[in-house]
Amino acid sequence: MEALSELLKSFPFLLIGAWETLKLTAFSVGIGLILGTFIGMGRLSKIKFINYPCTAYVEFLRGTPLLVQISIVYFGLPQLGIQLAPYPAAITALGLNSGAYIAEIVRAGIQSIPKGQYEAARSLGLTHWQSMRYVILPQAFRNILPALGNEFITLTKDSSLASVIGVSELMRAGQFVISRTFQTFSIYFGIAFIYFVMTFVISRLVRYIERRMATA
């Protein structure tokens, strides 16, 4: 009983943490989307000077643990004279990381569009960028929406790693409550429940948008 009452008492505090988690994730996804779109296009470039760095970027960020990446940004960069506060450091690391995954999604999305679409656009005199902007990417994004939703959900959960550098998101808020109440099971379970509700809502939201775009 005490466990439950402690959970209920600290619930508003956890919700504030959840709100921070959402903000953290939204910022990171925003960065990841912009980065991923350009790197995904770069991965398809025939110019080696563009293609190789983009490929290296994706391989490196997918091939190393996010926890290590966060540590490099927060603990490592200060040695090079770049000092970031926990929150910007977390957004940077999460954004760079999701950028790599989103790049792969975007690449697959572009490749899913028949070549004739690009050729038709170019044959009308549109430049490469115009063809991408008006013809290929709008269709690609419609196709990759489910995969992007997945990435959004993954990132919501992964953002809990930001707790190790002291960002007061949901996980960190929970640990704070536990250090005061020692109710490990109920609080961790409460945290899990809040994460689940967030990801569930996101997945429903993505499906709703998907269906609306399909009928549009």
Binding site: A120, L124, G125, L126, Q139
Partner: peptide, 20 residues
């Protein structure tokens, strides 16, 4: 190249209209 292409119209077997 883009100038050139505006002077030469092309029609494809698969139409290639933009579906969106």
């Amino acid at each position: 190249i883009n100038q050139l292409r505006t002077r030469i119209g092309m029609v494809f077997q698969q139409f290639n209209l933009f579906p969106h």
